[in-house]
């Protein structure tokens, strides 16, 4: 690619496209947020549901302390003897307290509060456990023992997350389309403003690609400028959100963190914006020039 010939008026005199970098910044801001949101949900909740998917929770709610301890021992025995179950662990009081704290407030969980015993069960991924059979055996021990495999809840949760993700991708797509339309308008307005200049360039023997190069370079810079501004704003927003949500963080809901790989992907967004802007401008100019004499 040879160097572009300087023949268009300075950018600051360019009424038609002067504001374009700012609109571009908004577009990049929106798409970066949509992308980030989608990636964080995917990664953050993905990890979380992953950690739940090979877990079972068993609650023993019998009121009488002694009976309950016997039942707990029996059910632990049963679980340990079930093929496919790797690990069974009874949560201690501190852990249960931590689970309840978000609802009851710190210090309000007292020893006289009736709390169930909770068993945390890790299941091997390799083996499919017959949950119905297990359930039947458990209910033989006591009617106060409940097995929860989280599946029903997880299923609903995952559907919701999918929906959120598709929405984010939809937004991204719409923003890209709007950006392309905007660049087309901008290019056409810029060309209309410089109609005579372009005609003169043609008379002096400039090819369409020379004219296009001037525009595509200019619009690439617009895309890059807007992209960097938009991305910075998106990062500021994101960091504020993470900061605010830290205060709310509890043992129950993990705050999704922004993983480095995804941050890396976001850094590419301004470059993509520049590329879209540049290509759109080039195609628009080349097509419009072909219609001129």
């Amino acid at each position: 690619m040879t160097k572009a010939i300087h023949f268009l008026p300075d950018e600051k005199n360019h009424e038609a496209t002067r504001l374009l970098p700012y609109v571009m910044a908004v577009m990049v801001y929106l798409s970066a947020l949509a992308l980030m949101g989608s990636m964080m949900l995917h990664k953050g909740f993905g990890d979380w549901t992953e950690s739940l998917s090979n877990r079972l929770t068993v609650q023993v709610t019998t009121a009488d302390q002694e009976t309950r301890e016997t039942e707990v021992r029996k059910v632990m025995q049963l679980l340990r003897n079930t093929p496919g179950i790797e690990h069974v662990r009874k949560l201690n009081e501190v852990e249960i307290e931590q689970l309840l704290e978000p609802w009851l407030g710190a210090g309000n969980v007292t020893s006289d509060l009736p709390v169930p015993d909770i068993l945390d069960v890790t299941v091997s991924r390799a083996v499919d456990i017959n949950l119905d059979a297990l359930n039947a055996q458990i209910s033989k021990i006591s009617g106060n023992i409940h097995l929860d495999d989280h599946q029903q809840w997880l299923g609903r949760f995952l559907r919701l997350m999918d929906m959120v993700e598709y929405t984010a991708l939809g937004i991204l797509l719409l923003v890209v389309m709007a950006t392309i339309c905007m660049v087309i308008f901008g290019t056409k307005a810029g060309m209309a403003e410089n109609r005579e200049t372009i005609a003169i360039m043609h008379h002096l023997g400039a090819q369409d690609s020379m004219v296009a190069r001037a525009y595509q370079n200019r619009f690439m810079i617009y895309g890059l400028k807007g992209g960097v501004i938009g991305l910075l704003l998106a990062f500021v927003t994101l960091i504020s959100l993470i900061y605010l949500s830290r205060d709310l963080a509890s043992g129950l809901v993990k705050v999704p963190e922004l993983p480095t790989v995804e941050v890396g992907i976001l850094l590419v967004v301004p470059i993509i914006a520049a590329a879209i802007s540049m290509l759109t401008a080039r195609i628009t100019v080349m097509r419009d020039l072909r219609r001129m004499v």
């Binding site: 043609h202 008379h203 002096l204 023997g205």
Partner: peptide, 9 residues
């Protein structure tokens, strides 16, 4: 059309 620039030069 593509041949015009060459001639115009």
């Amino acid at each position: 059309r593509e041949d015009l620039p060459k001639l115009r030069r």
